[in-house]
């Protein structure tokens, strides 16, 4: 049986969501997306360059009919800007599944949770289906869910830091308390970090820099695909218990 997950009624097989920023060029970006097996990519909404309308566009390389575009509000520091951006995104793309991210400060890119909560409420009222970037706080996660978040996306570590999952306990608490999908968003640095997120029972992982800033992004994209699958399988398999001392794997009986 295929292991699928669904968000707001849409089903996906891949549990890896990748960003489309920081790549050398569109070709590399498209190749990395293909290697990652991702069915969802995050995209930003920005002003068109009216002085160079013929410039290549993301949509020329990554087909929004084949890959789900998840518009993201990265770069927004208040609820109003984020909501305005997503209204434009909905008009540009014609879909209402979006990723909300309201940042608190440039240095840490930690979310401003007060503004995030306000924006989630407004977006849900306007018919959006917001997947929400948030702190790894199980209470905040509950509040977002109550406000209409269709997925909870706690940070594993600061955006672009590559530090890996810093607090496994809080991520697990969020997973156990949520009735919507939980995806680690931000902080993954290498394949084992993605596996950790999946082993904690997350429904998926979102990453950008870990792939884009690898020396070989396409190869790292493939590694991430395998890590997410391995982590998911390990979670479903149910890991062994941990002991403080050794326990031999070979029988003690019959020793010479």
């Amino acid at each position: 049986m295929t292991d699928q997950w669904s968000v707001a009624g849409r089903s996906f097989t891949s549990r890896l969501i990748v960003g489309t920023g920081k790549y050398k060029d569109f070709e590399q970006n498209a190749a990395a997306v293909a290697a990652s097996g991702a069915e969802i990519v995050t995209v930003a909404v920005r002003r068109v360059n009216v002085s160079d309308p013929g410039a290549p566009m993301l949509t020329d390389y990554i087909d929004p009919r084949k890959v789900t575009y998840l518009p993201n509000t990265a770069g927004c520091f208040n609820a109003d800007d984020a909501i305005r951006t997503l209204r434009l995104a909905r008009e540009a793309g014609g879909w209402d599944l979006v990723k909300l991210e309201v940042l608190g400060e440039a240095k840490t890119l930690y979310p401003n949770m007060r503004e995030t909560l306000t924006a989630t409420e407004t977006l849900a009222k306007e018919g959006f289906l917001p997947m929400v970037y948030c702190v790894d706080d199980p209470i905040a996660a509950k509040q977002l869910e109550d406000a209409g978040a269709v997925a909870i996306m706690p940070l594993g570590a600061p955006i672009g830091s590559g530090l890996g999952i810093q607090n496994r306990v809080t991520i697990r608490l969020i997973v156990e308390g949520a009735s919507v999908p939980v995806l680690v968003d931000a902080g993954v640095g290498t394949a084992s970090d993605a596996a950790v997120a999946m082993e904690l029972g997350c429904d998926g992982v979102l990453m950008n820099t870990a792939i884009a800033e690898a020396k070989d992004p396409v190869r790292m994209a493939r590694a991430m695909k395998q890590a997410v699958e391995a982590g998911r399988d390990a979670y479903l398999a149910g890991r062994m218990g941990q002991r403080r001392y050794a326990d031999p794997s070979s029988p003690l009986a019959g020793l010479i």
């Binding site: 569109f26 930003a44 068109v48 566009m57 949509t59 518009p71 990265a74």
Partner: peptide, 11 residues
Amino acid sequence: LEIVHFVGGGC
């Protein structure tokens, strides 16, 4: 007026 489109972006 604001005229926007989708560009590459992450988290």
